[in-house]
Amino acid sequence: MSRRLLWPVLALVALLLVNVFVTPSFLSLRMQDGHLFGSLVDILRNGAPTLLIALGMTLVIATRGIDLSVGAVAAIAGAVTCTHIAAGGDPFSGMAIALALCALMGLWNGFLVSVVGVQPIIATLVLMTAGRGIAMLITEGQIITVDNPAYRQIGAGFLVLPIAILISVAALVGVALVTRRTALGLLIESVGVNPEASRLAGVRSRTIIWTVYVFVALCSGVAGLMISSNVSAADANNAGLWIEMDAILAVVIGGTSLAGGRYSLTGTLLGALIIQTLTTTVYTIGVPPEVTLVFKAVVVLAVCLLQAPALSRALAPRRKVVLP
């Protein structure tokens, strides 16, 4: 394992140990009706949307970009599908329409960033704000509840493990294979490190940047389906709220620099697990609700500090200066 993944792994192990200490049954798993149950399975299931979005976010960040609109896009995906089902539509066509719309929004973000040249944080802020409004328009301001067994599967279903986490992990493995077995990873990193040098070397910088924004929007769409399916409802205001922050944190904790360039998918996986375990830990150890966010912030800060170059230099043993 590479050195930069050391701290995230330690942080995850430490968090799990805290949980085992507080709740001795934390690690126990049981099989019931062909499903696995237990706290660990819950963490995986609840962390699936964050992991999926963080996966797309990793590629965006590797190209020096960022996407703040993922939460809004997730809300739109849920809103479209639930409204479609509530109107008597088929869940599968609903999901297809939702994902097509998400791809369109990814195209919009990618267009602003790669063609118009708007800074990513501003370009995606537009959709972050407007997206919730669009979701509200679709649901006409209501929380749309649906009762569709097929649709429930994606967020709450099980195939031994939760279907949601299976989807996210499959996406992770797929992306890892596609980017590392082909040259896509190299080209993405090259664009992230030095866009102009890459362009002059003949890399299709614009196409690559555009593609990663479409990909993260699709990830967000599927994550939005998981979130809304899990509760069988579409809540335009609260679905996927702040998930962009969790996703960005997962990427950063995983060791991918916001300055672009080298990225680590394994790191992102660890980061997403840390974030979700942290959220669970807050409940299991009974942190008062009013200080939950502070507690979360402290842990995240600690992990980020441990990875900071300045601190690791300070912690590294000093070389002895030989005097003449």
Partner: peptide, 17 residues
Amino acid sequence: GEGLVADLSVRDNLILA
């Protein structure tokens, strides 16, 4: 600014074009 991709390896830089 317009030539090397500094954070990538010599190998990656060499085959980039």
